[in-house]
Amino acid sequence: MALMREVTDRVILPRYRNLGAQDIEDKGGNDPVTIADRESEAMLREGLARLADLPVVGEEGVHANPTQRRHLSGDCWIVDPIDGTRNFASGQPPFGILIARAEGGVARSGWIFDCLTGRFCAAHEGHGAFVDGERIAARGTGEKPPVAAISLIFMDEAKRAATIEHICPHYRLTDIPYCAAEQYPRLALSTNDVSIFERTLAWDHAAGVLWLNEAGGRAARPDGSPYRVDGDEYGGLIGAASPDLWDDLAARLAALPA
């Protein structure tokens, strides 16, 4: 928490709503990166090395050198230096920092920090999920129909159309925050009931999947298999405030026309 706060205060917030055109680049496919992303990742790498000398698999490091992905199958740190860069670059919330520690392709610890509010979520495998030091239990909204944040961005055209026709009508749709550091807490803190993710990059999902599962919700691949940080980056993922909500959405997805 101290490291994430320090990086936020020294690197991220001084750049918030203070970026010039020269400070923002497009990595391709409307995927921005800012000078703050790179500075944040460099500082996180240095700080994490003091905690445990493990390879760091960071979003910006992998973009520069894709071979770094090989470390995801071993012991490593996984870092998203600014999750929600699109929001950050446009001067809008939410955005945060995501860190996970993985062993053998599985996240064992995860931390989620909201840079603007200071909310700090933490989880360790088998030891529960916490928000600002208090253990929490996932809870849904209780609404009928359930509240769903469904990301259609990375679906192919056929899957997007099928999801809109056969899945969306069964839920009250709400916005997606373009920020996993916000979406996972929403699923446990009675803001959203379910979410669908198509792209499942490790730095976006490792910490959140562990945290939601430890809170008593459920996050897993649509076929029910566990999420692995070294798995398919486009394998799809369902997150839900409870196992029952997860089961219902998974059944609907399984019934989609081929």
Rank of each mutant, 00 (worst) to 15 (best):
G29W: 00
L210H: 02
Y234L: 14
R50L: 06
D9Y: 00
C76Y: 04
W77T: 09
A36Q: 05
P177R: 09
F113H: 15
A52K: 02
C168D: 11
A100T: 02
V131M: 08
L98Y: 03
A123G: 10
L210A: 10
N87C: 01
D244Q: 13
W77P: 12
E233D: 14
E198M: 11
Q183E: 13
A137Y: 02
P66D: 00
P222R: 05
L189M: 12
V229W: 10
A2Q: 14
R221W: 05
P14I: 03
I153Y: 10
K27A: 12
R218C: 05
P14Q: 03
Q68A: 09
I167G: 09
A64I: 01
G236W: 01
I97R: 00
G235H: 08
L253C: 05
I82Q: 08
F95G: 03
E6L: 06
P66W: 00
D244A: 15
R108V: 13
G128R: 12
R45A: 13
Q68F: 00
D23T: 09
I150D: 01
R45G: 12
L189G: 09
D75R: 14
P257M: 02
A258R: 11
L245S: 11
N18Y: 04
T85V: 06
H71D: 14
T191P: 01
L253N: 02
Q183S: 09
E134D: 12
L212Y: 00
A241F: 04
E143Y: 11
A206Q: 10
M4Y: 10
C76H: 04
L13E: 02
Q92T: 06
L253F: 04
D175E: 15
S190T: 06
I24R: 12
L54G: 04
G110R: 01
G239K: 08
Q68Y: 05
P146A: 14
N213C: 13
A254I: 00
E39N: 06
G20N: 06
P226V: 04
D156I: 07
L253W: 03
L256M: 09
Q92I: 06
P185M: 09
N213F: 05
F113Q: 10
G239V: 09
R135K: 15
L212P: 00
P14F: 01
A36T: 04
A181R: 03
A21E: 13
H124E: 15
L210S: 11
P185W: 04
G74E: 08
D248T: 07
V106H: 08
M155D: 13
G208Y: 09
H170D: 14
M1R: 13
F130N: 01
P177M: 10
L201D: 06
E25S: 11
I97L: 06
A158C: 03
E143L: 14
N192Q: 12
I35V: 15
D204I: 07
A49R: 15
H127R: 15
L187W: 09
L48W: 08
A64C: 00
L173Q: 14
C179W: 07
R135W: 01
W111H: 14
G231I: 09
A42H: 01
I238C: 09
Q92D: 12
R50P: 03
A180V: 05
V33D: 00
A180W: 12
L201A: 12
A251I: 06
H63F: 14
M43G: 02
Q68L: 15
P146Q: 10
R15S: 14
I153F: 07
L54W: 11
K159H: 11
V7E: 06
V131H: 06
L187P: 04
G118Q: 10
